[in-house]
Design a protein around this nucleic acid. Sequence first.
DNA 1: CCAGTCGCTGAAAACGTTTACAGCGATCCA
DNA 2: TGGATCGCTGTAAACGTTTTCAGCGACTGG
Lengths: 365, 365
Amino acid sequence: MPNSGQHGGQPTIVSIAAHAGVSIASVSRVLNGQGARRDTTERVRRAAAELGYVPNAVARSLKGGRTRQLTFAMPDIGNPVYVAMVRAIQSVTKQAGYRLLLHSTEAVAEDELAVLRSLRDRTSDGLILVPIRITDEHLRALENAAGPVVVIGSLPPGTPVDSVRADSVAGAAGAVRHLYRTGRRRIAFVNGPADTVPGANRAEGYRAALAECGLPYDERLVAHTEFGIAEGTAAAESLLAARPDALFCANDQLALGASHALLSRGLRIPADIAVAGMDDSSLARAAWPPLTSVDLGSSERGRRAAELLLDRLDGGAPPPPEPRTTTAPPRLVVRASTAPPDAPLPPHVPPSPDPTSPSPTDPRA
Amino acid sequence: MPNSGQHGGQPTIVSIAAHAGVSIASVSRVLNGQGARRDTTERVRRAAAELGYVPNAVARSLKGGRTRQLTFAMPDIGNPVYVAMVRAIQSVTKQAGYRLLLHSTEAVAEDELAVLRSLRDRTSDGLILVPIRITDEHLRALENAAGPVVVIGSLPPGTPVDSVRADSVAGAAGAVRHLYRTGRRRIAFVNGPADTVPGANRAEGYRAALAECGLPYDERLVAHTEFGIAEGTAAAESLLAARPDALFCANDQLALGASHALLSRGLRIPADIAVAGMDDSSLARAAWPPLTSVDLGSSERGRRAAELLLDRLDGGAPPPPEPRTTTAPPRLVVRASTAPPDAPLPPHVPPSPDPTSPSPTDPRA
DNA sequence: CCAGTCGCTGAAAACGTTTACAGCGATCCA
DNA sequence: TGGATCGCTGTAAACGTTTTCAGCGACTGG
């Protein structure tokens, strides 16, 4: 009953042509808004409507050489940061008439390379990739990519690929400085894996800010672990031995996990110890107390990456023309978790439910 | 440099055939593992390797009539519940060799219908849809769907579509009973929109459990709002006037928002007031104190939906054979947010808080 | 030694579009 | 009134596969 096509499948351009008594070329032309005589146009339109014709996207793709699909590959769809990126990307691509293929690589490099290679099967017109580590093999794969790629992350200079990076060095430094300004002196650091780009950068920012503030770098105040909530809890517990008065965490997941460790020991945040994270993901607002966090512009980066990609596709700028790199500026978003220790704020400060953030320098004091 | 194909594009089956000195048919056969003479096989393999041949997925789709792509459309990718579903679906479909197209409908019905219609353009082989409301138009669109669809949600009996539902009536009732058993007597309810299926069901469970426990239904203890964190905060604030000793929320987002409202007022959870949510999403674990929540089997439902869909595709069961419906059993996950209050109330002394599923006395007709 | 069989191969059609090209009648201008 | 122009139309090729079909040579069995 549903299908009124020839017999089994959907109506095709051929059915329409037959029904309207014209050639398939005319059908195609009418349906694509090219010129045609008035009554031809009308008959085609009517036939298409009656038969419920919808052009076959696959056939179109084959002819046109483009699928109008884009792929987004990120390490872990469980991390709200990537969800924010998906959102931003989605909104740009949808408007441009592209569909979005999702790929969660679970942070395994081999999977990232597979995605890169899969560009060869022409399933999607382009790729936005968030690699967790960048190996030589990645670079080689990027250079030989069979279509436009935009990387969200930091690439070695000279890599012929558009990229969008966060300035997590500056971001981390800003957070540490903020903790210092609000009176913290033993600022511990829960970092992700040291051999990842984010891990290395955040470590650099941490050390730089310590130096700037005249604080010593103390190894006992630093922990390395995988990015994740449970890992944050474990790391915080082990760091407590060193009696920190603040915990700076390399992302919000770690910070949230760390908070739980502190709270379950009866420590008060921020009265006894401050906690700050990075990414300013939805977790930062979901946490209690709400987490101070460094907004690394995830949405912004997603949006920008999508725009760069679309530009390569539609704008037609072929590979040679200068790889472009954008850096999203970090922005410290101060919330309750880092109020000064002595300021006798009651344990539960209502966090001004801020859609916009306080000024970067404002330590809320 | 990258491309060693004819001149511009990727190598095709024709290039390989020429390079190997065989016909394109032989190339296709060899590459698809059909029988061929030893040296033919070898020459084709070598040619393909040398030229870096990868079959064009679009051409394959056109010929084969299937894209090996599936679409998942849900209301809001910002809600961790749907992320959990994406995860579960992804893992099933990836293993079966399907790619996943994502679509966030932002809970607008028109968008859901558009997705349903877009099945006609043959972009994907099937669809998993999570509708927020089900209108007559939805039902009509479902019946005329141009490909297999699995709905995650409750459909009117008789709808010829596979579906996977949660038993949120029983789930809600179980949570309310749990609150009652742990000594709560003024159990407020923060519900989502009453005209959605989840909203209606949860309300039903709430009322049924109240009745069962001999508690009166008090309108002042009930709020309706959109699903969301901020909405939960607002609703909780307005409900506080009615002096509840527990807040049962229709999902974790509402519960989290509500917790924030309570904590900001200096109320202690669970000492002064208990909070429970539904979905047992990652938010429940992320919250402080960790939220008691009803696991409605999101991952399970995602997994099952994917399996049903794949079965329609590969198992070849054509539309007629009986739409199948699975119901995921709810499971109460007790966490800190609903521990008994400091001073237990007079009459009923609660037994040990049950970590397993709610009692089988099911209020559903 | 011949007919039949078998394994392998290539030509060609097909999937559903878009588009280059040529043909056609009507219109225009000289 | 005749040739050129114009607007519209249809035929056919092309996109890159898979698959049917028939052909071909080499076996096998009688």
